[in-house]
């Protein structure tokens, strides 16, 4: 099987860690590189976490640093979900040989797109700043990207504002640039879609008891234990924005699942823009439901196969049981 060439643009972020686990665990991809971006925590941490995760999961690929800040906007970070270091305080030491690749994220994306000659896919699961800079610098880029899957935006309610989702709210201008850039195959896995899949308590409990040799084991345990504590705290404060119960909801892995097997979802094709200036709608990905606009620029998942997601998730987790992976 020829592996699909892929760049992952991310801001790890605990759900990025799960997402990377799935992408690598699926065995489908030739991961050409990881580009880190500011987001869940500052770039210094997201890039370091990305480097650590690439080594943990045995991805033999360069890791680039990208944008430190949004194009225009300045906002605070989501430490309440991701802990102070982005990996909910999970402590690790970088292997001695771990180092960042030289150069900028956006130049790497362009060079790789040219090299792959129309076959490159991109999974972007953080603010879209790196991608926006790449598009600004290389307007021909979209045409060379076979498939762009992002986790971001919302077609309904948000998780940052009334209508805005966190990744997009961090850099609405970047989102608008990317939406209008003309990517021919652009799937927006939005906050709504991320609510269509989850692991039930019964399903996620076994993740606490993975064999120690499994490379995802320690991180999974930390993530789920932190989540239980965090949810209890949010409930007590009355600020729990997650769906009820003890199910494990997670964002970025939903995008991984859509990338790995697009048939996991049903889609509608719509036109969307991102509001950058509204007092209350800033960061909203506004969907043209009725079709006022003459064009479409995104595919939006409107239904997801949860059972299939669970099956996929655990198949990926299991791939790390092997010592040699």
């Amino acid at each position: 099987m020829i592996k699909r060439p892929l760049i992952i643009d991310c801001d790890p972020g605990i759900d990025d860690a799960e997402c990377l686990m799935m992408v690598q665990g699926s065995g489908q991809f030739d991961i050409r590189g990881i580009t880190a971006v500011h987001g869940n925590v500052p770039l210094e941490l997201t890039s370091k976490n990305a480097l650590f995760l690439s080594k943990l999961y045995g991805m033999d690929c360069p890791v680039y640093k990208g944008a430190k800040e949004a194009l225009i906007q300045r906002l605070t970070r989501a430490e309440y979900v991701h802990g102070s270091n982005g990996l909910i305080g999970f402590e690790y030491e970088l292997p001695e040989d771990a180092e960042f690749a030289e150069g900028h994220a956006w130049d790497f994306i362009w060079e790789e797109a040219v090299k792959q000659n129309g076959e490159l896919e991109i999974l972007a699961i953080g603010p879209l700043t790196n991608l926006a800079i790449a598009v600004m610098k290389y307007p021909e880029l979209p045409k060379l990207i076979k498939n762009l899957v992002i986790m971001g935006g919302s077609a309904g309610s948000g998780n940052f504002g009334v209508y805005s989702e966190y990744n997009i709210a961090q850099d609405p201008h970047a989102c608008e640039i990317v939406l209008q850039a003309g990517f021919p195959n652009f799937t927006m896995v939005d906050w709504n879609a991320c609510h269509m899949v989850h692991l039930t308590e019964e399903e996620w409990k076994p993740l606490l008891n993975l064999p120690e040799t499994n490379k995802f084991a320690a991180l999974a345990k930390r993530m789920l234990e932190f989540e239980v504590v965090n949810k209890a705290k949010l409930r007590e404060e009355g600020t729990n924005i997650f769906p009820t119960g003890d199910d494990h909801y997670t964002c970025d892995p939903t995008a991984a699942a859509v990338l790995i097997d697009p048939e996991i979802a049903q889609y509608v094709e719509k036109y969307a823009f991102c509001d950058c200036v509204g007092e209350m709608t800033r960061g909203q990905t506004v969907i043209d439901w009725l079709g006022f606009a003459p064009l479409k620029n995104i595919k939006l998942p409107v239904a997801m196969d949860r059972e299939k997601f669970v099956e996929m998730y655990f198949k990926c987790v299991k791939s790390y049981d092997r010592e040699d992976c």
């Binding site: 823009f273 509001d275 200036v277 509204g278 007092e279 209350m280 709608t281 800033r282 506004v286």
Partner: peptide
């Protein structure tokens, strides 16, 4: 009511 958005004014 959103008043400032370019295309969301009136949302």
């Amino acid at each position: 009511v959103e008043l400032k958005g370019v295309k969301t004014r009136g949302c």
